[in-house]
Design a protein around this nucleic acid. Structure first.
Length: 225
DNA sequence: GACCAGGCACATC
DNA sequence: GATGTGCATGGT
């Protein structure tokens, strides 16, 4: 009986409070599905501003297409995405993803649309360089699938509001959320973006949530730290 | 100069 | 299965 689950209520209240304070987040910034997927790989352990530089270098050269990136030599790709950091690693990972897209779906994102969620997630996870968060980012933000993306901000913010244990694993945290929220891609999209927004602003260098406007705003006790 | 950023693969125990 | 480490640029 989900209506009686107090955690569900707190999750929804947290969402409303975040939405009210931060407003629409407009994730994911990208002009098409491929750009979003490339961005998902480039942003691994990297600030988004650096990813934008790398994406712009590709875009300004007209290379931001599956076919062109697929044909681009790995070393050249690495040089172009250098501003996003760990560029040799990411060039290899992008290549692995483009190879997968080319071999499995003839390079067409649209063909993935019909594949069942659990199947396409498993396929993405089998690609070198695509782990749970990157796979889910692609599924939600690039393909519009109802998947909640979990990251360190998600874990940090929710644990500080005493909704989950600070060291909860990826899959458990994802289940915690998806079992309590309507299975709505637009909601998952906005909620995750909002968690990142509040995490960046108030959780990053402040173990005590200093200044966070949401700290006592959930109807429960404040987080004990 | 240290620390961090919208992780992941791999080695080692 | 848990834990540690390399990757690397650019902002704070």
């Amino acid at each position: 009986m989900p209506g009686r689950d107090p955690l569900r209520r707190r999750l929804l209240r947290l969402y409303v409070a975040l939405a009210k304070h931060f407003g629409p987040q407009h994730w994911w910034p990208g002009e098409n599905a491929l750009e979003v997927a490339v961005g998902a790989i480039l942003t691994q352990n990297t600030a988004w501003a650096n990813v934008e530089r790398a994406l712009e270098r590709l875009k300004s050269r007209g290379l931001l297409s599956g076919q062109k990136l697929y044909r681009l030599p790995e070393a050249r790709l690495g040089a172009l995405i250098r501003p996003s950091g760990t560029f040799k690693v990411k060039a290899r990972r992008l290549k692995a993803f483009l190879h997968f897209l080319h071999e499995r779906y003839a390079g067409r994102f649209g063909r993935i649309a019909r594949v069942p969620l659990h199947a396409i997630r498993a396929e993405l996870l089998s690609v070198h360089g695509i782990g749970p968060e990157t796979a889910d980012s692609i599924l939600l933000y690039s393909l519009g699938r109802p998947v909640f993306v979990v990251d360190q901000y998600t874990r940090r913010v929710l644990s500080r509001h005493r909704l989950v244990h600070p060291e909860i694993g990826y899959d458990d945290l994802q289940s915690f959320l998806t079992s309590r929220l309507p299975s709505d891609p637009a909601l998952f999209n906005e909620y995750h973006a909002l968690l990142v927004a509040v995490g960046k602003e108030y959780c990053r260098r402040s173990p005590r949530c200093a200044g966070c406007p949401l700290r006592f705003d959930l109807g429960g006790k404040p987080p004990r730290l």
